[in-house]
């Protein structure tokens, strides 16, 4: 194993640990629930985006249909809870499992599609899911599901006013998604994905193993996103198809990764840390005018960042060490 590569990975791990510790201490200083709410959403989107990045960034299979898995996670958890009394903790895992199975089932035909055909297929499959839930009477159809909140309970993972449990759960999920990505980077799968990206012809020779590793990536990605969906449902205590399966979720999962740097370890986290507070604050402080100014600001920023930094914000940090890293990556890939 290359020394520099190993050193960078060690450093990444240390930085992540330090940031996570800092984040864990944040609630000591941030008492305002509105700000806490933003922090939770930021962490949640960082986690979702990190999971999305595994499939779409590292494998290059751009999915704009991850809202499907998000919704499945949310619905599985809440249907099991409200109809059968299964605790959300188990529902969460069940939702993740179902989502992973669906992702693998879809992966089989989907991975044969390329480029726009794949992207549109993912959008379409999520829309189908949305429409089915919208018309599924047993699952509440358009009425959605209201989760009865009876008081603070770790067992049922519901809390009346306190945001802290949600905060730490989101933080945990975010760390988990980051760690999985970190671990994958140095795995056999990560190696194949890089090889395929660098050299498309290599894909042919690796054919079957790459296909299998992509299926794995889809499953891991879907599982984590579904757990995120289950978390969101518990956090909101109310779900309806439009608000957990809408197309905007698919975009919101992709945006942080794209802005931060797609296919990079730190991109999604960085993107979410900037994008989500920005979205929330523009809406809260200039959105009440009814004149759409918040939309203009938000949209213009997305255009500006995508144009100015096509490799994402991460490239700002790495520009100085660019040379080094290219060398590392090449070595890592050909090791």
């Amino acid at each position: 194993m290359d020394k520099n590569f190993a050193a960078r990975r060690r450093r990444d791990l240390i930085v992540a640990g330090a940031l996570a510790t800092l984040a864990a201490l944040a609630p000591l200083f941030v008492k305002d629930v509105y700000v806490q709410n933003i922090l939770i959403l930021t962490l949640m989107y960082a986690a979702l985006s990190q999971s999305w990045n595994i499939l779409s960034g590292y494998c290059g299979q751009i999915s704009l249909g991850h809202a499907l898995y998000f919704g499945i996670g949310a619905y599985t958890t809440e249907l099991l809870f409200t109809k059968f009394g299964v605790l959300p903790w188990f529902g969460m895992l069940a939702g993740g499992g179902i989502a992973a199975l669906i992702a693998m089932g879809l992966g089989y035909p989907f991975f044969r599609l390329r480029g726009h055909y794949f992207v549109i297929a993912t959008i379409v499959i999520a829309e189908i899911g949305l429409l089915l839930f919208q018309n599924w009477e047993w699952a509440g159809a358009a009425m959605g599901i209201t989760i009865p909140v009876r008081g603070d309970s770790w067992l049922k993972f519901q809390f009346l006013r306190s945001k802290l449990p949600y905060f730490y759960f989101a933080l945990g999920l975010c760390c988990l998604a980051w760690f999985v990505t970190w671990w994958l980077e140095d795995s056999k799968w990560g190696f194949w994905w890089r090889a395929v990206k660098d050299n498309p012809e290599a894909a042919e020779s690796l054919g079957v193993v790459v296909f299998n590793s992509k299926m794995g990536a889809a499953a891991v990605s879907a599982f984590l996103v579904a757990v995120g969906g289950a978390f969101y449902a518990q956090f909101l205590a109310y779900i309806d198809p439009e608000s957990v399966m809408g197309f905007q979720f698919s975009l919101l999962m992709a945006l942080p990764a794209v802005l931060g740097g797609i296919g990079t370890l730190w991109g999604p986290v960085l993107g979410a840390a900037i994008l989500i507070p920005m979205t929330e604050l523009t809406r809260s402080y200039i959105g009440g005018s009814g004149r759409g100014v918040d939309l203009i600001v938000y949209g213009a920023l997305i255009v500006a960042i995508s144009l100015a930094l096509p490799q994402g914000l991460v490239s700002l940090f790495s520009r100085a060490k660019a040379k080094n890293q290219v060398k590392n990556q090449v070595k890592g890939a050909t090791r």
Binding site: I38, T42, C174, V269, P277
Partner: peptide, 14 residues
Amino acid sequence: MTISRRDVLLGATA
């Protein structure tokens, strides 16, 4: 780990 100090500052100023 996703909360940069920037967030906290942003929130705090708000």
